[in-house]
Every structure is written in C-alpha cells, then in structure tokens.
Design a protein around this nucleic acid. Sequence first.
DNA 1: TATGAATGAGTATTCATTCAT
DNA 2: TATGAATGAATACTCATTCAT
Lengths: 209, 209, 209, 209
Amino acid sequence: MARGRSKQGGNRKRETRWREVLDAAAAEFAEHGFLGTSTGAIAKRLGLRQGRLYYYIPSKQRALELVCQLSTEEMVGGLMEIVARDGDPLEQLRRAIAFHMEWLGGRRDYCLTFLRERRHVAGPAGRLLADTARRYERLFEQIFRTGVARGRFRADCNPAQAAFGTLAIANAFGLRAQRRGAPLPPGTARWIADLVLDGLACGKARAKR
Amino acid sequence: MARGRSKQGGNRKRETRWREVLDAAAAEFAEHGFLGTSTGAIAKRLGLRQGRLYYYIPSKQRALELVCQLSTEEMVGGLMEIVARDGDPLEQLRRAIAFHMEWLGGRRDYCLTFLRERRHVAGPAGRLLADTARRYERLFEQIFRTGVARGRFRADCNPAQAAFGTLAIANAFGLRAQRRGAPLPPGTARWIADLVLDGLACGKARAKR
Amino acid sequence: MARGRSKQGGNRKRETRWREVLDAAAAEFAEHGFLGTSTGAIAKRLGLRQGRLYYYIPSKQRALELVCQLSTEEMVGGLMEIVARDGDPLEQLRRAIAFHMEWLGGRRDYCLTFLRERRHVAGPAGRLLADTARRYERLFEQIFRTGVARGRFRADCNPAQAAFGTLAIANAFGLRAQRRGAPLPPGTARWIADLVLDGLACGKARAKR
Amino acid sequence: MARGRSKQGGNRKRETRWREVLDAAAAEFAEHGFLGTSTGAIAKRLGLRQGRLYYYIPSKQRALELVCQLSTEEMVGGLMEIVARDGDPLEQLRRAIAFHMEWLGGRRDYCLTFLRERRHVAGPAGRLLADTARRYERLFEQIFRTGVARGRFRADCNPAQAAFGTLAIANAFGLRAQRRGAPLPPGTARWIADLVLDGLACGKARAKR
DNA sequence: TATGAATGAGTATTCATTCAT
DNA sequence: TATGAATGAATACTCATTCAT
C-alpha cells in the first residue's frame, strides 16, 4: 500500500491512532451524550483540529456506531467463553457478573455510551447492535435456565426476567460507582451476585408466603 | 366584576393549555431526548406553529426543568405520606414500590425525561432537582432503616444501598414494560417488592455462606 | 359617526388616549431606540396588551413617524413666531435658544427620538421630516444672517455654520442634563447663548490673530 | 521550526482578516446601527456566508464591544501624548482638536459606532468603555484647567463644561462633514479650535455684560 | 499527517401584526 | 374598549462536513 511506509508499522500506528480517536469519542459521548458532543470537542481532546478528524472517522454518526459495537461484541465473546465452560450455574453466574462488572469499570466510556446513546443508532447498524445486546442477555438467560433445570435455582425463577434484572442491577451499581469517579470497591461483584441470587434465583418466592 | 370572571376563565384555560404544552414537551423529550427534540416538534404535536410555543414557555430549557420538577415533586409528596403512616416496614415497602410503579406507568414521559435528561438541567434548577431526587431516595432509605431497627429486615442490610437498588430495579422493570408500549402487568409491583425483599432486605446474606 | 356616542366627547377621549400612546412610544423609543423597542413594551407602559395597540396606531413604524413629526412641527411653528417678531438679532438669538432648550426639557422623549431615530424614517415621511428639520435650522440661520447684515454679529460669521453649531451645542448640553435625570439648571439657556455669541457670532475671529 | 513559521504566517493572516471583519462590522454598525445590522449583512460585505463570521468573532455583541473599544483606546493613548508634552495650553488645545478631528475622519465608522451605539454595550465591557470615554474627556479638561491656572484662558471657564462642549462641537462638525461623504475641509480643525477658544475659553463672559 | 478556510443547513428565539371574541 | 390566540418572517448562532494546501 502506498500509504504506510512499512505496511506493518504504518497500519499498526494507524490502528493505534484510530483507537485513540474512538476512545476520545467515547469519552465525549459518555460525558455529554451523542447530540451534546461536537466533533470539535472530540478533536480537541486529541489535540487535533476539527477537520482533521475526518481522516480517521467517516462521520460522527459512524463513530458512535463503532463505539457501541466494539465493546459489546468483545463482551459477548468473553461471556460466551464463561458460559461455554461447564460448571456449577451458581459459580457461572458469579463469574459472569464479575466479568460484566470488570467491563463496566474498564471501559466505562464505551459502556455508558452504549447504554445511553444507542438510541441514536438506527438502521442496519442499530439492528446489529440490538442483536448483539440480545445475544448478551441471552447468555445470562441461559445460565439461569441451566440453573433451574439442574435444581440449583428455585423452580419459579423466570430466566428472561432474571437476566434482565441482573443486568439492570449490575449496571445501576456499576455505573453509580463510576459516576462518583471511584473505582469499583473490590467486593462489589460478589455482593451483587449475592443480591441477584437471593432476589432472583434462590430466595423463597415471597408471593407464596 | 366582569373582568374577574373572564380572568378566571382565561387563567384556567391558560393553565390547561400550559399543561398540555408540558405534556407534549415531556413526550418529545422522552422519545428523542432533550437535545434531539426541536421546539418545532413540540409545537407540531400541539398543532401550533413553532413561534407560538413561546407564549406558553419561556424556553426549551425551562420546559425541561418544569417537566423534571413537576412530577418528581409530586412523587416526593406522595411517598412522604406513605412513609409517615405508621405500619409494618415490609408493608410500607410494598406500598412504596406500588406507588412508584404507578407513577412510572401513569407519567411515563415525565419519569423517562427526568431519569434520562436531567443531566441537561444545570444551575439552580439542577441543584433543586438533585435535592428533590435525594429526598425521594432518602424516604426509601428510611423504610429500610426502620425495618432493620425493628428486626424485620436482616441486620446487614445497608439502607442506602437498598434504597438505590430498589429504585434501580423498579425503574428498569417499570420502564422496560413501558418501552414495549404495554401497561404494567398487574402483579408487577408485588413481584418486584418480593424481589427486593429477598435480595436486599430479608434473604440470607450469601457472602456469609 | 357610528363610533363615538357623542362625537365630540368620543373624539376628545380618543384624541387624548392617542396622545398617551404616542407619549409611551416616544418614551420607549428614547430609552431603547426604535429597533430596541417592542410593541409589547409600549403596550405594557400603557397597561394594554400588545394587540390592542393597533387600535390606536397603524404600525410601529408609523408611530415613530408621528413622534418625530409632532414636536418638530410645533417647534418650527414656535420658532417662526420668534423670528417673525422684529427686534435685536442678539435678543432674538437668546429667545430662540431659550425656546429650543425649553422643548428639549419639556419634550425630552420626543426630541431624543427625533434626533437619534429619525434615520429609521424613510420614504415620503422621511423627506417630510428632513424638510421640517431644514426649515427649523434655516430659521436660526436667518437670525444670524440678519445679525450680520445689521452689523450686530461679526462679518465673517457664516450663518449656516453658526446655525448648525448652535443646535449642536444646545442639543449636547440640553440632552446631557437630561441624561442625568435632572431638569435643566435655570441659567443654562442664557449661558449657552453667550457661548454661541462669543464663539460663533461676536468673538474676534481667531484665525486672523 | 517549520510550525513556528507557518504559525506566524497563519496568525498574521488571521489577524489581518480579523481586522477586516471588525472594519466591516463597524461600517455596518455606523450605517444601520447595531440592532439594524444583521450578521448576514456584515458577512456579505466581506464576501462570506453568515455562519463563517463566527470563526472570527464570538458574537455580534462582542464585535460591537471590540469596535467601540479599539479606536477609543488608541485615541486616549494619542491624546495622552499630546497633553503630556509641555507647551502653551492654547497650542495644546489646538493640537488636541486637530488630533480628534483626524480620528473622526480616518476612523469614521468606528467613531460613529462608538458615539451612537455604545448604549448597547452593557456589563463589564460597558463599564470599561465608559471609563475610557471619561479618561478621554478628562484629558481635554486638564488642558482647560492648566490654561485657566496659567491665565491663558479666562478665569470663569469651567474646565469640565468646556471639555464636554469642545467634544460636542467637534463631533457635530466632524460627523456632519462625514455624513456628506466628503473629507473634512483642511482648515476645519483650526476653525473649530477658534470657535471653542472664543466661546469657551477666551471670549468675554457675556452674562456679565 | 495536519491545517484552516469555507459552507449549508438547522435551531432557538423574537416580534410585528392580525383577528375572532 | 379590550383580550388572547395565532402566525410568518427574521435573526443570531452552531455544527457536521469538505477541501485546497
């Protein structure tokens, strides 16, 4: 390729810079929202002038799509591994939650952007995103289903609801901690897993009392 | 006086129209976000031309503030009554959650707007809003604190965390149902209360197992 | 006429109200300028609602024209009498200046509006205004011309320039006092007349020294 | 450094363009007033599209402030030099008036804008402007005060009034000539100085006659 | 790789004016 | 005599995007 002097080196550098651009976009999107972010603000964060941004990304819209896709797809990949590995569903759930919390902490900007700004991703990209999100939730669902089937979780546990609820709780606590700027306290994942287990999977069904 | 009467009538009509304007704003804000909403869109929803809107509201910004303030303040009022009435903390929590879910259902647009768009309310109005939100959460906190003190909830229940978690779960389920356009299924509030009780207030603390 | 119950009474009342409207317009124009004045502001000053104004005036533009014309025409009338009356040009000038200062004080809003806002009167009305203003200046000019002809003013006094200068000085001092909110101090007109006489009409022509 | 050089060049070009923008704004403000000037009109004068203007100036308001500040501050600087240089107060006054007239001619748009539109500069910028204007007037005042102290001007000359009057006369004649589009006739400054000297500083006080 | 000039379209807000009541 | 609802046009300002250099 004419562009990179050494193909490898050039591409790697380019790739690196490209990630930096996405990081900057994610940071701005997380802080001010997609519509509240100007391309100038992203550029400024990178020490570039506005126009230059378009060398790296084709549009602000596309940047949002990429930010939303990148981490979600990696998250699905990671979670798949956990679910694929056999083991006690209860342990699996703990690991899954720990995994999820790690991402919330490590990729805060990407997660926040995905959670709050995905509404601005429409069309094919939006459908792709919705699909990825569904796959992620289904993996949690599967853990609950297995747990119920094996008698580890209580019989009236609704896997779909449990999966949704688990993510809601994990995200709420995970992002609350973020909002305060502090890293997640170490026991958080464990504590949330217990909360979920008691409330959604193992506790006595209250309504029956 | 003839004028007094006509003035009354005028004011009532004006007041009504004002609420309609806020409703329309809330609906648009909930659907497209504050920044994604143009004043023209609000006007269109009301069958007005854009400029006319400013006869009722001083600015889009102020409309957002009012939308965010109106329902939250009423919610605090309602919840205060529930908490003030004496009774079993467990029953109080159930009533509180039911009350909260009713608002999520009945004032969907206002609640969504508050939850997602309040970040765009800055300055004094923002501080007021934060204060109202804090008061609301504190009322839930108080229920948990009383429950722990009276031995109805488990000893290691952290009232602040429990209050936060309760709202996170209630909002997540309440608004998920909304997103699908359907009204909340009748048992939802009860079911969520059980979830919260098992997970946050009464279940065995897993970590100790 | 169908409109007034008693023609006389109705018209007089109407006439009065009409003057009040013009006064209010003049006051706003003087304070905020023509473009800086909204019809709502004029209406407010009168205790009316915006729309009602159009019962009295056909347009904001026309209101400006009337404000500018009214006092200038009366001023021309008054000054003509002074100039017509025979007498020492020096005394005439004193009287003319006193007359001018009285108007600046008594019709402050009208004078300010005329002086600063007449640029916004275009078309036939603008030409009429320019003509009236020219007639006014010419009357001063005439005093100087007579004074020179009769040997009361120095020979090299340029009547046109002297007239222009006289008005500039009178307006500047007259309106400065106004700006400070105080009524013109009693001796002002006399003092200004002396200034003008020394500087423009009687003093030794410096350039010759 | 290559960048340094290009930056220099860029800055100089930018600076130049910036002055052109202010010149255009001043021209429009002088012709149509601040409120009568649309940003589009300024842009058109520069051959730009409206939006582009905001690359050079942050707002129309700020442009007005800059137009008003720029020349007034330079004028104060120039006048200070004249007053600082020792010499006959009478000669000083002549120089000061000549200096003032030169500015009226050379920076007509800026001066007109300052004189007529400064009322639209409020807040801190307005206070700064008022201060600069006061300093300018005080410098003239000082000339008169010195002249009286040294017995060159008549004893009952009021320096503050004389300064105000001098500026009123100079502005009136200076801007009248401008309005007619012609440059100031050569002897004007001299002639005005004589007028001022006779009327304000040296003539016999008429009232005593 | 980077800059800055340029643009076109969009958006909130204001306001003179009209009209039915 | 007065009101309030309604409108259409204007206007300041922002911003994503392009392109010559």
